[in-house]
């Protein structure tokens, strides 16, 4: 056998060996991928199931985020502070400011914050206005919502919310305001479930109907339980779902620490394409402010001037305190 032939045989053998080695290397790579992101591969399977159920969603993120348990108390000294407000008739009912503007404020229905941002920041218009930020998710044609922030994330609870009411001619007529004080971080920061995981959990809990769309999923803080020393807020994925069969947006909540569904009987029907179906300002959260401090008397009926329909949310106010001990 000449040297040439031996060399050719070697080339063939090495080529086969290389092909085999490359194949197993590739396989290890694939496995490594699933090991490091076993959660996200699980998620993608569920997302596929969701697509099969005709559920569409906005782009979801797998980004790792951190959050903490926070506590805050309801501001009981608003009465003194509203004295400085001008060009409006404001009063405090159960620790919420209710105010009617002397002169309506015209806003662009597409970008109401353009006018309102300046209005809110002025201390003679809104008390502690600089603590609030515009929240497009909760805002509709009939109400524009601003929220207080914890760790840079909005407080999805009535107690930290400023709601402007807008009439049919796009004029702001008045507002209600809850104000939280003494915000404290209770424990060190800890990792949260990702946005994708929150949405897939919601689907697994059977809370997303077929043929609907996940409009938004925002990390915020919601009240988890009420104690004598204040209300505990937990990082929460607040998710807005629009069903094709109905006009409103349903808001669902997932505890971002535990992945547990925070059940509250409120099916917030925010907005619709027409202004006819209004919303209840008080219904989109249950903010069970310590029952000794406020009686939650019919959610102060503050929104009566604009809300035309009310969903059955009367029991929602007591729900939050019991929502902590769901199983994992």
């Amino acid at each position: 056998m000449d040297f040439r032939r031996i060399e050719v045989i070697f080339i063939v053998v090495f080529a086969i060996l290389n092909a085999y080695l490359f194949g197993s290397y590739w396989q290890y790579q694939l496995e490594a991928g699933t090991t490091s992101s076993s959660n996200s591969s699980e998620n993608s399977t569920i997302l596929k199931e969701m697509r099969n159920d005709q559920i569409t969603y906005m782009p979801l993120s797998n980004k790792k985020m951190n959050g903490y348990y926070a506590s805050a108390t309801v501001d009981t000294s608003l009465k003194d502070n509203i004295k400085r407000l001008t060009d409006q008739s404001a009063r405090v009912v159960d620790n919420y400011v209710e105010s009617t503007l002397n002169e309506e404020l015209t806003v662009d229905p597409k970008q109401p914050q353009k006018v309102l941002n300046t209005f809110v920041k002025n201390r003679y218009n809104i008390v502690y206005g600089s603590e609030y930020q515009y929240n497009p998710n909760l805002s509709t044609n009939v109400q524009v919502v601003y929220t207080q922030m914890i760790d840079g994330h909005p407080v999805y609870s009535k107690a930290g919310k400023l709601t402007f009411y807008v009439n049919a001619s796009n004029e702001v007529t008045g507002y209600t305001q809850g104000h939280l004080v003494n915000e404290k971080q209770l424990r060190e920061k800890s990792e949260l479930i990702s946005q994708t995981r929150a949405v897939t959990w919601l689907y697994q809990y059977n809370e997303i109907q077929n043929d609907s769309k996940v409009e938004w999923a925002d990390l915020g803080y919601t009240n988890l339980l009420t104690t004598d020393n204040g209300v505990v807020y937990v990082p929460t994925w607040v998710i807005g779902i629009k069903s094709k069969s109905s006009t409103g947006i349903q808001v669902k909540r997932i505890n971002a620490f535990s992945g547990v569904l925070i059940k509250k009987d409120h099916e917030v029907t925010t907005e619709s394409s027409t202004q006819a179906s209004g919303s209840t300002a008080a219904s989109d959260d249950s903010s069970s402010v310590s029952s000794t401090e406020t009686s939650e008397s019919e959610a102060t009926s503050a929104s009566s001037d604009v809300s035309s329909t009310t969903s059955s949310t009367s029991s929602a106010t007591t729900e939050a305190t019991t929502s902590t001990s769901t199983t994992y």
Partner: peptide, 24 residues
């Protein structure tokens, strides 16, 4: 292939996969 960490990860994976939790 011999130094690929995935070789070791596989062993670990088996024991942790069984546990399903919705927490982080």
């Amino acid at each position: 292939i011999w130094t690929n960490p995935a070789r070791y990860e596989r062993a670990k994976q088996v024991s942790s996969e069984k546990v399903q939790s919705n927490q982080v």
